[in-house]
Design a protein around this nucleic acid. Sequence first.
DNA 1: ACAATCGGTAAGTCTGTGCTTACCGTAAGC
DNA 2: GCTTACGGTAAGCACAGACTTACCGATTGT
Lengths: 108, 108
Amino acid sequence: MTYAKALHCLGDPTRRRVFERLRAGPQSVGVLAKGLPVSRPAVSQHLRALKDAGLVGERSEGTRRVYYIDPDGLGPLRRWLDRFWDEALEAFKNEVEKPQDPGRRTNP
Amino acid sequence: MTYAKALHCLGDPTRRRVFERLRAGPQSVGVLAKGLPVSRPAVSQHLRALKDAGLVGERSEGTRRVYYIDPDGLGPLRRWLDRFWDEALEAFKNEVEKPQDPGRRTNP
DNA sequence: ACAATCGGTAAGTCTGTGCTTACCGTAAGC
DNA sequence: GCTTACGGTAAGCACAGACTTACCGATTGT
């Protein structure tokens, strides 16, 4: 069920930008916020959400906090997507392969 | 950029339930709504959003409209995720492989 | 033609939440 | 010990958007 949190998190544009920015490598909150059109507290709150979703990790370096992408964080979402993809394709294939179900009534 | 729409769409729990329900196969709006805790117009609106995001398709069967999962709809999201996954892993690896950058100053 | 079903749309409400300012704790440098 | 930088948290505001009811058009069957 943890993929739901990930989806909800990445659904927000700003939060997604924060996340994508971290792709370049670990960064502190201040640096992160300076490159975004929102205030530092906003970024801080987004980072908290991302952390709750397991998408990012955090470590202290002196007075600053460095956030980084958790390499396992996207795992659940990826697996969900893959399973969904497969099942949807199969359902789609089945749908095409039974063009005329004998018992079916379109317009009785 | 179309992955953004998909993420935003699937970020909403109800919309995700609608989408997941379609995984079983094409269904009409009424049937779809009967299995959910929200009204039919709500489902209709969610379906519209899903359609705008390219996640579902729609066809008319007499007076009812049957919605189905667009097998290509998740493509962009999947590709984005895969690329992201790879880049994040690489960045993570690079980070581990340079434990002591000579020019780096942690505490000057 | 009429009645009934299905479903999209409009209008309005209300909760969730993204953002800001202000404040405070903590760690580092003088 | 004092000052400064960094960043998390609280309180409050404002807007997006999820949901409902009411209405209407379209299609089907008698």
